[in-house]
Amino acid sequence: MLAQQFINAISLGGVYALFALGFTLIFGVLGIVNLAHGAVFMLGAYSALHAVILLRLPLMAAILAAIVTTGAAGWLLDKLIFAPLRARDAPHLAPMIATIGLAICLSSSVEGFFGAQNLRFPVEALPTETLSLGGIRITWLELQIVLLAFVLMGILMWCLKQTRIGRALRGLAESPKAAALLGIDVEGLFRFTSVLASLLGGVAGVLIALYTNAVFPLMGQPMLHKGIAVVILGGMGDIRGALLGGFFLGFAEVFSVAYIGSTMRDAVAFGLLFAILLLRPDGLFGKATQRRA
């Protein structure tokens, strides 16, 4: 049973980490807590779902469709909301409140088009194999989610370190003003980040929807709630921290169910988070002075 719970924790942690990657990226570069990230995540799931159902596309093509939709959503998000607010030199909480409005718009539009009821991917489209080893079971899909979280983290970190655009992004995260003085296209990079973060959210939406079998207009809301915890636990804007934070929350939840009782699960997880923040005011894995965008 312990081994199974360990596997459960890894798989749940992977889910949280995958969601958190895009969320933390926006915070790291734009300095915005994007409360519409859950809605973008939902948009990804719906795009892929309808690509599969209506256009009869294979799953891979559907993921591509989700990337296109959510990427476009990210572009619009920056163009219509973040950029005008930057131009007006808005106080730092203003964009966050605007993203609440956007989340309402997205989820109510999707509800208007597709209804409020839960939907799921057709069984034919799902990878359904389960791996079983001495009573311990994990599905292929869970494994893929965990692997993808690690791969994406690796790619992101490599890009930030090794590529020109990555270095520019890190510079931007440290100081937009300095970056602009150095001739970096600040506005373009902000937009690029918003697109990248949103499409990461979209991919997460598809995979997690495949796993939960529950696609509904407000599916992003509970994820957002957990995602905030994960990202802050890992140190805001920290890519590796998002992954570690995700696994930390996954383990905290699973093992409180295993050893304390499922009614106390969220109290234990969030109580732990509260205590950690008091002991380490910049997150479990965060550094006080330096932001790793």
Binding site: Q4, N8, S11, A258
Partner: peptide, 20 residues
């Protein structure tokens, strides 16, 4: 006896307890 909350992603921890 196990519980879950609305919007949960994974029910496997509880189901693992049930299986045991």
């Amino acid at each position: 006896t196990e519980t879950f909350a609305k919007g949960d992603v994974s029910f496997k921890p509880q189901l693992t307890n049930i299986r045991a």
